[in-house]
């Protein structure tokens, strides 16, 4: 017993002060991409050609980057001859509408708004989620799991991942939704009582990600269910997921 107390003392207090303070991220972290379309030569398609998932499109002289398909591999930025495209260290990228993820280089980023006031009253100060991995590679899963460790301590915000869908207010889905998980995902969804909030975490869950076009998968959960929150990334950083959840419950605006 004394050993456990001493160990606790030496490990120290480790819970991050997020959202008040953001811990330093790696200098090489690739967050929200930024681009200056005015620097793009009219017929240049280098970035879209470098993208492995077709997240970048160029039409009528305009560049569009879909964060919902982006793997954040940075190959576009490395290839761009004009240095028009860079990855910032902004980790806050969750949105409420799918088209909010399509960047065109103009206007502010549409950060996720809170759930409707009626819904928030119903949920009170708690949000219980059932997670379903539907073809996820265990990276999104791991970085969702980590939110329950002492570093992030998700429960202090009233958010908790629960075992039974009957105890849940909503669903957090990872993975492109494989055909072989379609039935299990839908049954889990149906077992969750209303309001049944749906969150798509990671490029796969949003659009199929790198597996889009495979006949073994559906192109993300949006093909089957209405989605309330989109968290981009491959996988999203735990802070990106946490920021999204906190915005959804109105804890961060």
């Amino acid at each position: 017993m004394i050993g456990a107390l001493l160990a606790r003392l030496s490990q120290g207090y480790r819970t991050l002060k997020y959202p008040e303070e953001t811990p330093p991220l790696s200098g090489r972290y690739r967050g929200l991409p930024q681009f200056d379309g005015t620097r793009c030569p009219a017929d240049c398609t280098v970035c879209s050609g470098a993208c492995p998932t077709g997240a970048i499109t160029r039409s009528e002289g305009k560049t569009r980057l879909d964060l919902g398909t982006c793997l954040f591999c940075g190959q576009c930025a490395a290839a761009c001859p004009e240095h028009a495209l860079t990855f910032s260290r902004e980790h806050r990228m969750a949105v409420r509408q799918r088209d909010g993820l399509v960047l065109d280089g103009a206007g502010p980023f549409p950060h996720a708004a809170a759930l409707e006031p009626g819904l928030r009253r119903l949920l009170g100060r708690s949000l219980r989620l059932r997670e379903v991995s539907a073809g996820g590679c265990n990276a999104c899963e791991a970085d969702t799991n980590v939110l329950s460790t002492i570093s992030y301590d998700l429960a202090r915000f009233g958010i908790q991942f629960v075992a039974s869908p009957r105890h849940a207010d909503g669903l957090l889905v990872t993975g492109p939704v494989t055909r072989n998980m379609e039935t299990a995902l839908m049954k889990t969804y149906e077992a969750i009582p209303e309001p049944n909030v749906v969150i798509a975490a990671g490029a796969c869950a949003i659009s199929g990600g790198m597996f889009s076009g495979h006949d073994e998968v559906v192109r993300g959960v949006g093909e089957l269910l209405p989605v309330d929150l989109f968290v981009p990334g491959c996988p999203p950083h735990p802070l990106t997921i946490l920021d999204g959840l906190l915005r959804l419950i109105g804890r961060v605006r």
Binding site: S133, G135, G175, T178, F211, H214, D215, E216
Partner: peptide
């Protein structure tokens, strides 16, 4: 198993 099959190998 098989629930996670994404068809990687043949691609």
């Amino acid at each position: 198993l098989g629930y996670q099959h994404r068809g990687i190998e043949r691609r």
